[in-house]
Nucleic acid binder design. Structure first.
Length: 960
RNA sequence: GCAGGGGUCGCCGAGCAUGGCCAAAGGCGUAGGCUUCAGGAGCCUAUCCUGCAGAGGUUCGUGGGUUCAAAUCCCACCCCCUGCACCA
């Protein structure tokens, strides 16, 4: 076993034996409850889960060290269809799938066979998942664990839905879905062979009249164009049927029959006919009562909608092209006994006005784009473009009667409704592209009846949900708008299905609450599930009254106790536990859950809980990429969390993920980088161990002050970033920046170990504990501490250790270092002797004076000169001062505001002393003799007379 | 189409809200040196261009603009990513 693994196992056992992550209410401590959306158990935990969950764990561990009573519960999602589907694939002997289970998920052969039972499959992944969640070091209170098929949990969901129903938020209605006629079930994206992302399009059907009794239902997306109708197109070579459709006589394409049957239409076919039978006849526009001709259109696709198309040549490029085409082919028309003269006389009817176009926009766009005929692929593009323009900026013309002068955008829906009221239109759904089910059947649209919905359209509910968001913290803040737009955009959500695991909808006649709808409030269940399991409370005992009492404080506990056999004491304890933990303080997940799960969570809390129990904050993060690509089992880049931990260890896996990204950016998992972190941790362990186990000396020089000062800054930075869930910045600072500070100190100090260094290392590993808990425990144990670092107080910045003088003195050293290197680079000389000259006493007076004045904006050189000429002690230097002033002004403008302030605060320091203290360091660095003089020393070595160029914080340098 | 997020010096990625501390943090990679039996790892140094004195020049998707001053502000354009519903 690797050493990393040994260390992990050791500390995991110790933590669990000491129960340090089990949290019970403690009124003396402030609480923090953090949560992570429970993972779906149709597969193993992967590094994507680990990314989101690690952020939660880092925050939990950080807050725990800060002294909060932290609860971090976990559960497993079993509800829904995919688990069943997966199990069925095994049952069918799907070898591709079985191979994936074996090779990617790492499921043993004999185990896979048992997966024909979906429960066994889910149970397997759940127990494996738990092992891994423990190994990665998540500081979870496992006493609250459950799966969504626990009967006790289902009682909670029943209570939730009973309440939602009482509030009127659960409604029934119809809903169009993509449907597989063979499977007799909705075909979601995951079940499709082709047509991913295709959704039902709603067409308006205009009921043109062939005669008194017969209707030609023509489908359109643009019902307003009914006013511009000039003719109907029928494909002469296609097969149509005459059928009784809901008591009306319709002529539709043969293909339309099956579709309409699934859309609340009863259809009896009377006869079949060829399209050409209709061509040449006339029909009536039901709105304008115009009598118009039916013309042959071979472009009409009978697979789309009703197979009947009406023509609006003024605004539809295809119609224009087809009409012009026919007008030039009298012989074709004669074949259908149509008078060519009549067709020539058809005038497009212009009904829409748009800027930049005249009478016939269709004609104009055709000419602009140089489209030759209806078979030109650009015609499609022209259509789209014109539709878009007319929709967004088009206005209806006076010939559109009461809709005249109205913009299409604002009138469209109303116009469609009005037509329907007049009985001259209907609705139909169809798919814009071919959708094929996994079973190879072509899908259609079905209108599901008696669907159960969560009515997110309800304006009061929306308003309340917005209030929940308004009082929440969102990390990162930029995600807040996403939530608001989601709330506005959500409409009725079909919340039940007929198959899969889950909780039956109360009074739902066999409908089961679907997976996204049963996982909105369960964080409240965590607070009491501990008591339910510990006291073996049966599902039967968990009546709505029990939950009412616990969550709403409603009802009489003595009464409830009598009917349920739950003691009043236990009822109170559960109520107390809920009140202590709730609301949750943080819920963190990937951004893809914003438009659904996270927003649902907000809606449901808004509905069922009072403001004091509304969520405190939500964190959102990016989607994990693997080597630059989305992670997919089929792509072969799927990384299970188990594999990652086995290979890199828990700490490196956690930190590799955390260093990847924060905010909404997508982190990229690169094996090379994770390995690098693993190596870094090995080095860090040796590095820190060496220091921690070496005897120290008490020293108190400028360098110690500098290091102490620096570490205070780092504590401050890491703390602040963690507060805002900026895990990447926090880890970067804690790991690399702090390490660099320590390395610099050691470089400057040489081989002496000091108490300051040791103390700094201790602080350092505390800062790293939320990220790499195992490594830090191990290092902590080497400091002869008997407690866990995981429960050690988080460091706080110590004001008394902030030392700007030490910082500026060290800045002086680094400035000299870079300047010298710069000179060496430019001159390409190998130094034998480096001489450093610090500025004269009188220069300080001027330097500080100028700094003070430039701060307020005064930079007139003449003013300065005047002032200094009148200062007796400066007068002797006045010649030099003239050249010095512009130089100082120039250097100070380059200084940061903080450093300027610091320089003023510090006033003068003994630069010569500071540099002399670093002589050894410079000597070693440049392998040259180092001399330091003050400009005012007369016996200085200064062959080139450089010393006079020295100014405070910028000593002169001479190199031989 | 609708909505949201982005394009920074080889790569990843800070910075952009509050314009000047920015040739632009940090990590990776690369090069040189040290250490090591060797491999790996580690440590140190360098890493836009130019420069015989601590300097100058050209960069932050493209093109304009505002300003003494723009990676940062404004306008236009190009490109990339994610979600869009019955599904976790």
């Amino acid at each position: 076993m690797s050493q990393t693994k040994q260390v992990e196992e050791k500390w995991l056992t110790k933590w669990e034996d000491a129960h340090i992550f089990e949290a019970d209410p403690d009124p003396s401590k402030q609480k923090i409850m953090v949560t992570f959306p429970f993972p779906y158990m149709n597969g193993p935990l992967h590094v994507g889960h680990a990314f989101s969950a690690s952020r939660v764990d880092v925050y939990a561990r950080f807050k725990r060290m800060q002294g909060y009573n932290v609860l971090w519960p976990w559960a497993w999602h079993w509800t829904g269809q995919p688990l069943l589907g997966a199990s069925q694939r095994v049952a069918k002997g799907d070898q591709t799938y079985i191979k994936i289970l074996h090779e990617v998920d790492g499921v043993p052969e004999e185990q896979i066979q048992k997966f024909v039972d979906p429960k066994i499959m889910a149970q397997y992944y759940t127990s494996e998942g738990k092992k891994i969640a423990r190994r990665i070091g998540f500081s979870v209170d496992w006493r609250r664990e459950f799966t969504t098929v626990y009967p006790t949990f289902q009682k909670f969901i029943e209570w939730q839905y009973k309440n939602l129903k009482d509030l009127g938020y659960v409604t029934r209605g119809t809903h169009p879905v993509v449907w597989c006629p063979k499977d007799q079930s909705p075909t979601g994206d995951h079940d499709r062979q082709t047509g991913e992302g295709v959704t039902p399009d709603e067409y308006t059907i205009i009921k043109y009249k062939l005669d008194e009794n017969t209707i030609l239902p023509a489908a359109t997306f643009r019902p307003e164009t009914i006013y511009g109708t000039t003719n109907i197109w029928i494909n002469p070579d296609a097969t149509y049927v005459e059928a009784k459709v809901n008591n009306e006589n319709w002529i539709i394409s043969q293909e339309a029959v099956e579709k309409l049957k699934e859309q609340q239409k009863t259809i009896t076919i009377n006869r079949t006919l060829q399209g050409k039978e209709l061509v040449g006849k006339t029909f009536e526009n039901p709105l304008t009562h115009d009598k118009l001709p039916i013309l042959p259109g071979w472009f009409v696709n009978t697979k789309t909608a009703t197979g009947i198309v009406y023509s609006v040549p003024a605004h539809a490029p295809f119609d224009w092209l087809a009409l012009k085409d026919l007008q030039q082919k009298p012989e074709t028309l004669q074949q259908f006994n149509i008078n060519p003269q009549m067709v020539l006389q058809i005038k497009p009817i212009s009904i829409i006005e748009i800027d930049g176009y005249g009478e016939y926009p269709a004609e104009e766009i055709i000419k602009q784009m140089g489209i030759k005929n209806q078979h030109d692929p650009k015609a499609e593009q022209a259509t789209k473009e014109l539709y878009k323009k007319e929709y967004h900026s088009g206005k209806l013309k006076p010939n559109c009667e009461s809709y005249a002068n109205k913009s299409i955008k604002e009138i469209k829906t109303q116009l469609a409704t009005n037509l329907e009221k007049l009985g001259i239109s209907d609705k139909m759904y169809d798919l814009s592209e071919q959708v094929t089910c996994r079973c190879t059947t072509t899908c259609i649209v079905k209108i599901l009846q008696d669907q159960w919905f969560l009515n997110y359209t309800n304006p009061e509910w929306k308003e309340k949900a917005k209030q929940v968001i308004a009082q929440m913290k969102i990390y990162p803040e930029t995600a807040r708008t996403n939530f608001y737009t989601t709330i506005d955009w959500l409409k009725e959500w079909a919340c039940a299905r007929t198959t899969g695991f889950g909780t039956p909808l109360p009074g739902g006649n066999g409908w089961i609450i679907e997976t996204l709808s049963d996982s909105t409030m369960y964080m409240a269940f965590y607070t009491i599930n501990k008591h339910i399991t510990q006291n073996n409370i049966t599902p039967e005992a968990l009546t709505p009254q029990v939950f009412d009492y616990i969550y709403h404080g409603k009802g009489n506990k003595t009464q409830i106790s009598k009917t349920t056999n739950i003691t009043t004491q236990l009822l109170d304890e559960m109520r107390k536990e809920f009140l202590y933990w709730y609301p949750f303080d943080l819920r963190n997940s990937a951004k893809e859950l914003v438009p659904n799960h996270l927003s649902f969570c907000i809606f449901h809390h808004a509905a069922l809980f009072p403001p004091q129990h509304w969520p405190k904050s939500i964190g959102v993060n990016g989607m994990l990429m693997v080597e630059g690509q989305g992670m997919h089992k089929s792509k072969g880049n799927f990384i299970t969390l188990k594999n990652a931990i086995d290979k890199y260890g828990a700490d490196a896996t956690r930190c590799g993920l955390m260093i990847g990204a924060e905010g909404m950016d997508d982190p990229d998992w690169k094996a090379e980088n994770i390995n690098e972190i693993k190596n870094k941790f090995e080095t860090l362990t040796t590095f820190a161990t060496n220091i921690l186990t070496t005897p120290q000396q008490q020293e108190n020089t400028q360098l110690e002050h500098w290091l102490q000062n620096k570490i205070q800054q780092r504590i401050q930075e890491v703390t602040q970033n963690l507060e805002e869930l900026k895990t990447r910045t926090a880890l970067q600072t804690a790991l690399f920046e702090t390490w660099n500070d320590i390395k610099w100190y050691i470089q400057r100090k040489g081989n002496t170990n000091t108490t300051t260094l040791t103390d700094t290392i201790k602080t350092w590993i505390k800062l790293l504990t939320p990220f790499a808990p195992y490594m830090c425990e191990e290092l902590w144990s080497q400091t002869n501490q008997t407690n866990f670092i995981s429960t050690t107080p988080w460091p706080k910045p110590d004001e008394t250790k902030i030392d700007i003088t030490a910082e500026e003195q060290e800045n002086l050293i680094t400035d000299i270092l870079t300047d010298t290197q710069n000179i060496l680079k430019a001159t390409k000389i190998t130094p034998t002797k480096i001489v450093i000259y610090t500025a004269a006493q009188w220069k300080w007076q001027i330097y500080l004076n100028i700094l003070e004045k430039t701060k307020t904006g005064e930079t007139k050189i003449s003013e300065f000169m005047k002032e200094y000429t009148n200062t007796p002690e400066l007068k002797p230097h006045i010649k030099n001062i003239a050249t010095l002033i512009p130089k100082i002004i120039k250097t100070t403008t380059k200084l940061s505001q903080t450093r300027k302030t610091n320089h003023i605060k510090i006033q003068q320091t003994n630069e010569k002393q500071t540099i002399q203290n670093a002589t050894e360091f410079f000597k070693e660095r440049f392998n040259a003799e180092i001399q330091v003089y003050n400009e005012e020393e007369t016996d200085r070595y200064d062959p080139k007379n450089r010393a006079q160029t020295a100014i405070p914080y910028q000593p002169a340098i001479y190199i031989e």
